[in-house]
């Protein structure tokens, strides 16, 4: 339970403002980006008519995304959005799934430390606490101690900052696309509703038009619901996993929960996030 609320942060000052960065989440985001870039490079290096496993995986995802994008936006408009939507889907999916990886540096560190301990007896000490609980505390003087300092894998989407950034990115794309397509005046008019006339100079009456404010609020709250949906599901799954694991002493049940919250909820939420992004683009297109 002591994992909750522990953050490793970097704090610095910029233009008189104190800025705090969550260093673990930044590291995890870059790990996801690096993984995606490398695997995409390897999969597309030698494209073949009969695809290899990696190429096949990417093709399946790409065709699925292409189908839903073109189905919602139409063949003509949808084409240019497919790469963006694909990137969003793959990034959110990889970000949701990274949390199911075990804490691998710690694991190797312990193996090295215990072998070292068996031969020299200087790698650390055994702490016996009761009958069943024995822990090994590695010494800080060994050259491989840096292995214990790596954080465990955490979903970047567990932090609201990542989700809000993605939500705002989609919001900007939706509205810039809409302005580009319809022009600024027509875009502005779409906030006016039908009851108060909004043709010609009537549009200047927007401060007394209640529908204007309601539409603006509903646009802004769509960003909130879009990003908090992802955040709530991933963060909630993590909280439940940690608390239930500590209640059952990490015995058997966490595996099932990890399968549900890690794999199933991860893919469902990635799909929902992507599909809603397509829908928002389609509504304003």
């Amino acid at each position: 339970m002591d994992k909750i609320g522990k953050l490793s942060t970097i704090t610095f000052e910029l233009f008189g403002q104190v800025i705090t960065l969550n260093s673990t989440m930044i590291l995890m985001t870059y790990i996801v980006i690096a993984f995606l870039a490398i695997s995409a490079y390897l999969a597309t290096r030698k494209l073949k008519q009969i695809p290899s496993t990696g190429q096949n995986m990417f093709e399946i995802i790409y065709e699925f995304i292409e189908e839903i994008t073109l189905g919602t936006l139409g063949n003509k408009d949808g084409k240019s959005f497919v790469p963006f939507i694909f990137t969003i889907f793959v990034f959110v999916l990889a970000a949701n799934w990274i949390g199911i990886l075990p804490h691998i540096t710690n694991f190797f560190g312990f193996i090295i430390a215990i072998i070292h301990q068996l031969f020299t007896g200087e790698a650390g000490q055994w702490v016996v606490d009761g009958i069943t609980k024995t822990t090994f505390i590695p010494s800080q003087n060994t050259f491989y101690y840096f292995l214990f300092k790596f954080p465990e894998f955490q979903e970047p989407t567990r932090s609201i900052n990542t989700d809000l950034a993605l939500g705002i990115l989609v919001f900007i794309i939706v509205h810039v696309n809409s302005i580009k397509k319809h022009g600024l005046l027509e875009y502005f008019r779409s906030y006016m509703g039908d009851i108060v006339p909004s043709k010609g100079w009537w549009i200047l009456l927007f401060p007394i038009n209640p529908f204007f404010y309601l539409n603006v609020i509903s646009e802004v709250s769509s960003v909130v619901s879009h990003s908090f949906r992802l955040f709530g599901n991933i963060f909630g799954g993590f909280m439940i996993l940690v608390i239930v694991s500590s209640l059952v002493k990490h015995f058997l049940i966490p595996v099932g929960l990890l399968a549900f919250f890690g794999i199933f909820a991860g893919i469902v939420q990635a799909f929902v996030f992507t599909m809603l992004a397509v829908t928002y683009i389609g509504q304003k297109n």
């Binding site: 709530g232 599901n233 963060f235 909630g236 799954g237 909280m239 439940i240 608390i243």
Partner: peptide, 9 residues
């Protein structure tokens, strides 16, 4: 899940 998260918090 949301309700459980809030009550665990």
């Amino acid at each position: 899940i949301f309700a459980l998260t809030v009550s665990l918090i």
